[in-house]
């Protein structure tokens, strides 16, 4: 019986190894091909000799293409959206979780109802609104409409509901204002949910493609995803260059992925339960 179990466990590990290799294979292809010369790129050598590899592709994408600028644009957009969104959503979440005011229920229901509106349905009016605001072909035109997010408000509210009230009560007795209690007592406790949301927002905005595609035209304003997509759709695709650029654009996300994996999976689980 025990032997049978061990055999079964061994087979399971073998099967999982094969599945994992298949799933990771494309990522490995990206990395290895990005170091190959143009003429070698379709040569399916999965463990090439070190001497056949080159860093030239990386030098080219940074010097001849504007990849550095595009990466900076993405970093700028994703960071601003994340920071501002966290501040706004923490405030809204706290007001909805703890403060008493008229119309609380209606406001909360209304905020949650905006979750049902998919982006692709409102992209045309959004484009018109941003155009009217004079923010076309401007990074702020990408940033500002991406800040409001009912999901972030909801998660902050849930988190604040779970904090014991006693902490706030004692500060209030000491004469602190409502906002002071929020700022000094409650906000420092919200670090776990803030990190989870920060990673989620940064990822979503770094990877965003459709919305920036609508807003910016100038090459100097392209975000990294647009730059790479355009790189690929150019007449003669130089795969080794496109893949090198893809690797560079993936590095920040892969680092975030490994550092914050637990936070990311926690975020996914709550989205599933609360969904």
């Amino acid at each position: 019986m025990r032997k049978k179990k061990r055999v079964r466990q061994g087979l399971l590990i073998a099967l999982m190894t094969v599945i994992a290799l298949i799933i990771v294979f494309p990522v490995y292809v990206m990395v290895i091909s990005s170091f190959k010369e143009t003429e070698d790129v379709f040569n399916m050598e999965l463990l090439p000799k070190l001497s056949t590899l080159t860093l030239d592709n990386y030098i080219t994408v940074f010097t001849e293409e504007s990849l550095g600028v595009n990466i900076w644009n993405s970093f700028f957009v994703a960071t601003i959206v994340t920071v501002v969104a966290l501040i706004f959503h923490a405030m809204s979440g706290y007001a909805l979780a703890r403060l008493e005011f008229k119309g609380k229920k209606i406001i909360f229901t209304w905020i949650i109802s905006t979750l049902m509106i998919p982006f692709s349905v409102i992209m045309i009016p959004l484009f018109v609104i941003v155009k009217e605001m004079g923010l076309m072909n401007n990074l702020w035109g990408i940033i500002i409409p991406m800040i409001p997010n009912a999901y972030g408000i909801f998660l902050f509210r849930q988190f604040f509901l779970g904090i014991p009230r006693e902490l706030e009560e004692s500060a209030k007795i000491d004469g602190a204002s409502y906002f002071g209690v929020f700022l000094r007592i409650v906000l420092p406790l919200a670090k776990p949910i803030a990190v989870t949301l920060a990673v989620a927002f940064f990822l979503a905005n770094w990877n965003n493609y459709l919305w920036p595609l609508i807003i910016v035209q100038d090459k100097e304003l392209w975000l990294v995803q647009i730059a790479i997509a355009n790189f690929k759709s150019s007449q003669a695709v130089e795969w080794n260059l496109v893949l090198a650029a893809s690797c560079v654009a993936s590095v920040p996300i892969i680092v975030l992925f490994f550092v914050f994996q637990r936070h990311i999976t926690e975020g996914i689980k709550t989205s599933g339960i609360k969904g």
Binding site: M91, A95, E100, W110, T114, P125, I129, P148, Y178, F179
Partner: peptide, 30 residues
């Protein structure tokens, strides 16, 4: 109570305004 409500509205204002202009009005405008 008034102070509490005012603080709450103030804290909600940026997000409510944002959702109004960039989600709610767009769906009607669409």
């Amino acid at each position: 109570w008034n102070k509490e409500a005012l603080t709450a509205y103030g804290m909600l204002l940026p997000d409510v305004l944002g959702l109004l202009v960039f989600v709610f009005i767009p769906i009607i405008y669409a």
